[in-house]
């Protein structure tokens, strides 16, 4: 789990570094970033309500603030916002948000606002990368930092799968089907990307996804 959380954190750091160092967000999907902010805000509503550990609270805070930062850069920064590929980033996010919400309203562990929003965030996270993957496919020369960002982000839920297997074996009664199935789907969505990422990495070439 620690490795999963760290790759998640690194992915965000890599993206912030890329944007800040190159003053460019080309190849980065604003739609995916906005979906992630929605995921973090709806999942971490309990930040001030239930306390698990200082570690958890800090990470929640970092995830919300950093994704807000990235969105701020992409929308408001004089130089960076000019480099956003708005014409290419056309994924219809309503097709991800509404089905996730409806599914959360129907399939959840407890019928309460907080629980439904939490479940919604789990469902939405599993598909939030899709606009970014579509944009990558449309981008001819994907820069290394952007592809590293997506690779790290994909590795994160993959490592969580190992964490869940471990916890399932060591903790009595540890079951969370909603999270597991969504996590499996989330990792599966990256399979195709992983294949081309590792292929280009082995050949020492820039990544370009076939259309």
């Amino acid at each position: 789990r620690e490795a999963g959380d760290m790759t998640h954190l690194f992915s965000i750091i890599v993206l912030l570094l890329k944007i800040n160092a190159t003053k460019s967000c080309s190849g980065v999907s604003l739609k995916t970033q906005e979906l992630y902010l929605l995921v973090f805000v709806t999942r971490y509503l309990d930040l001030f309500q239930s306390y698990i550990s200082l570690y958890n609270s800090c990470m929640k805070f970092i995830f919300i603030v950093s994704s807000g930062c990235i969105i701020g850069y992409m929308r408001k920064h004089k130089v960076v916002s000019q480099t956003y590929d708005a014409e290419q980033d056309t994924f219809r996010v309503a097709f991800l948000v509404w089905p996730s919400f409806l599914l959360a309203a129907v399939i959840n562990q407890k019928l309460s606002v907080m629980e439904i929003l939490w479940t919604f965030s789990i469902y939405l996270e599993s598909v939030a990368i899709l606009p970014q993957l579509v944009l990558l496919q449309r981008t001819k020369n994907v820069d290394n930092l952007t592809s590293n960002y997506v690779f790290l982000l994909g590795s994160y839920r993959g490592l969580y799968l190992l964490n869940w297997i471990y916890r399932c074996l060591t903790e009595e009664g540890y079951r969370q089907w909603i999270v597991w199935i969504s996590g499996l789907l989330q990792t599966a969505i990256y399979c195709d990307f992983f294949y081309y990422y590792l292929k280009s990495w082995r050949k020492n070439e820039r990544l370009s996804l076939p259309s």
């Binding site: 998640h8 939490w118 969580y160 916890r167 969370q176």
Partner: peptide, 10 residues
């Protein structure tokens, strides 16, 4: 009833 591990991941 909330289980001890519920929502304890990120």
């Amino acid at each position: 009833r909330r289980k001890s591990w519920d929502h304890d991941e990120l």
